[in-house]
Design a protein around this nucleic acid. Structure first.
Length: 599
RNA sequence: GCGCCCUUAGCUCAACCGGAUAGAGCAUCCGCCUUCUAAGCGGACGGUUGCAGGUUCGAGUCCUGCAGGGCGCGCCA
C-alpha cells in the first residue's frame, strides 16, 4: 500500500533523474496552497541550488515530463520553482477505494519488524497513582499501539517500582501495627498464602510510614534495616513483600484498565536484582567501574566533554559532562541507575530488543543519558538502541505542575472521577433515544471522559508541558476528544440507517470538492502514522484524527448520502463514510480511545 | 554559576529536510436545521513568530548576542 505522496515522489524522482538531477531531492509534500494544487514538490529549488541552475527552468522541464502522467489532471510551475500537481478525480477515487478495502490498516503501512520494548507507566507499590503518572501511561500506550500497527514486535513493560526504601517502610509499619505478625518471624516459614493487608491498609500505611520516617530517626533506621533484610532475602519479609506487590498490582491494573492501558510485563526493579552481582563483576572486569570519592562509578563522558562546575568553596572546576553514573554508593548500596542498567542487561538476555523506549518525564533526561552511555560502554545494548522519550508536565491554570485546590497532589482516580462526572452530566442532558439503558449511559460517560483526557494530552506536542483545563477538554465543540467521538458516532448512526434502508455500497466516485478533500485526507493517514512513528509523536495521529473528522463533517454537510439522487452516488458516498469510520476508529484506537455506538 | 528546553493571534496549541499568503480550536461577531445526530457547517475578526544582529535568492525554522520563563546539576527515584 502506497500513499499518493510516495507514489508521486517516485514519479517526480524519475523525471528528475531523466533531467540528470539527484532523484532523492524530488520529495513531494501536501500542498501549502490547497487552492492551487493537491501536492507540490520543492525539489527543483534545492536541485538548482546544488547545480547552480535556474530553478524555474528545471521545474518546467520536470513538469513537462510529468504532464503525461495519467493520474495528474494538471502540473504547473509556480513561484520560484514549485511544481504544483493536481490529481485527477479518478486517481483519487482509486486511492480512496484502496483505503476503504484495507480492513486491517485503514491505509497505513508497515515497516520491517523490529523487537521493541516500551518502558512506561512506572507505578509504585502502595503508592496510589497521581496525575504525574498519567502522561507516561497515555503516551506509552499510544506508542505501543502505533509501533504494533506498523508491524513491530512490541513488549510494554510497566517497570514496577517494587524494590526501594518504601518496601522497608511498609514492612516496618505493618509489623508495628501487628498486622503481619506471622511474617515477622525469622526463619524459613512457611508463611501464610493469604494476604494480611488490604489495599486500604496499604493506602493508609504508606503515607503514615513515610511521614514517620521523616520525624523519627529510630523508625527510619529500622525501615532501612528492613529494606536491607528484604533485599538480602529474609524469607518472612519476602513473603510479606510478595503480598504487597500482588495487592498493589491488582489495584493498579484496575486503574490502568479504566484508562485502557495494559502491559505485557509487570517486571519490577526487583527483577533486575538477581543480575546485580553478575553485572557489577562484569563492569569491574571491563575496567569500567572505578572508585570515586568512596563510591563506585562508571565514567561516561568522552575526553573533552566537560562543563564548568562551581564547588561549595566557591572555586570553579572543569567537570566531566555528563557526570559519571553512580553504581554503588559509598554505603555500598545500589542506586536507581544501577537498577536501570541491570534492567537493560536483563532485557538483553530475555528479549534482545532492537530498541528500548523509555517514556519518562523530561526531567530525567540527563539520568538516562548517563545510563545509556554506560550500557553502550558495557555492551549491554547496541549503539543508538536506547531512547529516552521525555515529556513535559501537566500544569494547572497557574502554569505550575497540577495541584488540587488544597495544594496536594491529585490522585489519578479522582481525576478520572471528575471527568466522568462531567461527562455523565453532558450525556444525561443530551437528546439520546429513550431506550438507552443506565448501563450504556454510564459506559458512554466513561468513554467520553477518557477520550477527553487522552485526546487533550496526546494532541499536545509530547515534549512540552501543557495546561490542564477540564472544562476545555470536556467541551463537545472544537478540537476535543468528545467532538471526535461525536463524529464517529454520527457515521455509525448513518451506517445503521443505510443498512435498514438497504442501501448498498458502490464503487467510489469523486466529484464534489468535499469528496476530493475527504479522499485526500484518507490518503494522508499513511504519512501521519509514519511521521508519528519516526518522531515518536502521537500528536501527529491526534492531528490527523481531527482533520479527518473535520473533512468528514464538511462532506456530511455538503454531500447528502441517503437522500442522494441515485443509487450509485448513495453507494459511493456510503463507501466513503464507511472508510472514514474505519480510519477514524483506527486512529482513535492508536490514541487509546474507544468509541461508543451512540451518544 | 554551568547545562538543557521553551517564548507563535486575547487564550490553548500547530507548522513536514530552510520555501508561496504562518495554520487550527476557544472567545467575539454574522449566516445556515420541514432533509442522514446543529455536540454540526459556512463566513468575518484577529500576527513585526520575545528583542537585536547574521547566513541565504528565501528564516517561525539555521548561527551569535540579549531579555523573560521552566527544568536539571553523584550517594532520593
Amino acid at each position: 500500500m502506497t500513499d499518493l505522496k510516495t507514489s508521486l515522489s517516485e514519479a517526480v524522482g524519475s523525471a528528475f533523474a531523466a533531467e540528470g538531477v539527484d532523484k532523492a531531492l524530488a520529495r513531494v509534500t501536501a500542498s501549502d496552497r490547497p487552492d492551487l494544487a493537491d501536492f507540490q514538490s520543492n525539489g527543483a529549488l534545492a536541485a538548482a541550488k546544488a547545480l547552480k541552475a535556474n530553478p524555474r527552468e528545471l521545474a518546467a522541464k520536470v513538469a513537462e515530463r510529468l504532464a503525461a502522467d495519467p493520474r495528474l489532471s494538471s502540473v504547473e510551475v509556480a513561484g520560484p520553482g514549485f511544481i504544483n500537481m493536481k490529481l485527477s478525480n479518478a486517481a483519487l477515487a482509486q486511492r480512496a477505494a484502496e483505503v476503504a478495502a484495507d480492513t486491517e490498516l485503514a491505509g497505513a503501512s508497515r515497516v520491517e519488524p523490529r523487537k521493541v520494548v516500551i518502558d512506561y507507566g512506572g507505578p509504585n507499590v502502595a503508592k496510589p497513582m497521581h496525575v504525574g503518572h498519567l502522561r507516561s501511561a497515555i503516551i506509552g500506550e499510544s506508542l505501543k499501539r502505533l509501533f504494533r500497527l506498523r508491524g513491530d514486535d512490541v513488549t510494554g513493560d510497566a517497570h514496577f517500582g517494587d524494590w526501594g526504601f518504601q518496601m522497608g517502610l511498609l514492612i516496618t509499619a505493618c509489623g508495628d501495627e501487628g498486622l503481619a505478625d506471622a511474617f515477622m518471624a525469622e526463619g524459613d516459614g512457611p508463611f501464610p498464602a493469604e494476604t494480611p493487608v488490604t489495599l486500604a491498609d496499604l493506602d493508609r500505611l504508606y503515607p503514615l510510614a513515610a511521614g514517620k520516617a521523616k520525624e523519627d530517626p529510630a523508625f527510619r533506621d529500622r525501615a532501612r534495616k528492613a529494606t536491607a533484610e528484604l533485599q538480602g532475602g529474609r524469607p518472612g519479609y519476602r513473603a510479606l513483600w510478595q503480598h504487597f506487590v500482588a495487592v498493589s498490582r491488582e489495584a493498579l491494573k484496575r486503574e490502568y484498565d479504566d484508562l485502557s492501558v495494559d502491559f505485557d510485563l509487570w517486571n519490577g526493579e526487583s527483577d533486575a536484582d538477581p543480575l546485580m552481582d553478575e553485572m557489577i563483576a562484569d563492569l569491574k572486569a571491563k575496567g569500567l567501574l572505578v572508585e570515586d570519592d568512596g563510591a563506585q562509578v562508571v565514567h561516561v563522558a568522552k575526553p573533552g566533554e566537560t562543563r564548568k562546575k562551581k564547588l561549595a568553596d566557591g572555586s570553579v572546576i572543569e567537570a566531566p559532562s555528563p557526570p559519571p553514573l553512580l553504581v554503588i554508593s559509598s554505603e555500598g548500596s545500589a542506586m536507581y541507575g544501577t537498577t536501570d542498567l541491570a534492567t537493560i542487561l536483563d532485557r538483553k538476555k530475555s528479549i534482545a530488543p532492537d530498541l528500548i523506549l523509555y517514556v519518562v518525564d523530561e526531567r530525567q533526561a540527563e539520568h538516562f543519558e548517563q545510563v545509556f552511555r554506560a550500557a553502550y560502554l558495557a555492551g549491554y545494548a547496541p549503539e543508538k538502541s536506547l531512547e529516552h522519550l521525555g515529556f513535559g508536565t501537566m500544569n494547572g491554570a497557574d502554569g505550575k505542575p497540577f495541584k488540587t485546590r488544597a495544594g496536594g497532589v491529585l490522585k489519578l482516580r479522582d481525576l478520572i472521577d471528575m471527568a466522568t462526572q462531567s461527562a455523565r452530566y453532558a450525556v444525561d442532558n443530551a437528546d439520546l433515544a429513550g431506550d438507552v439503558t443506565p448501563e450504556e449511559r454510564e459506559d458512554i460517560a466513561h468513554k467520553v471522559a477518557i477520550a477527553a483526557i487522552k485526546f487533550a494530552d496526546l494532541s499536545n506536542n509530547r515534549t512540552t508541558s501543557y495546561v490542564f483545563d477540564l472544562d476545555r477538554f470536556m467541551s463537545f465543540e472544537g478540537k476535543t476528544g468528545p467532538y471526535l467521538l461525536y463524529q464517529a458516532v454520527r457515521v455509525k448512526s448513518l451506517l445503521r440507517k443505510a443498512s435498514e434502508q438497504g442501501v448498498a455500497l458502490a464503487p467510489i466516485v469523486i466529484e464534489e470538492a468535499a469528496e476530493r478533500d475527504l479522499a485526500l485526507t484518507l490518503d494522508a493517514f499513511d504519512a501521519a502514522t509514519a511521521d508519528a512513528y519516526d518522531k515518536r509523536s502521537p500528536n501527529l495521529i491526534a492531528e490527523h484524527a481531527y482533520r479527518l473528522a473535520q473533512s468528514f463533517s464538511k462532506f456530511y454537510a455538503a454531500c447528502p448520502i441517503l437522500v442522494a439522487p441515485d443509487e450509485a452516488t448513495k453507494g459511493s458516498r456510503l463507501a466513503l463514510a464507511a472508510a472514514t469510520l474505519h480510519q477514524l476508529e483506527t486512529a482513535l484506537r492508536l490514541l487509546g480511545i474507544e468509541t461508543p455506538e451512540r451518544m
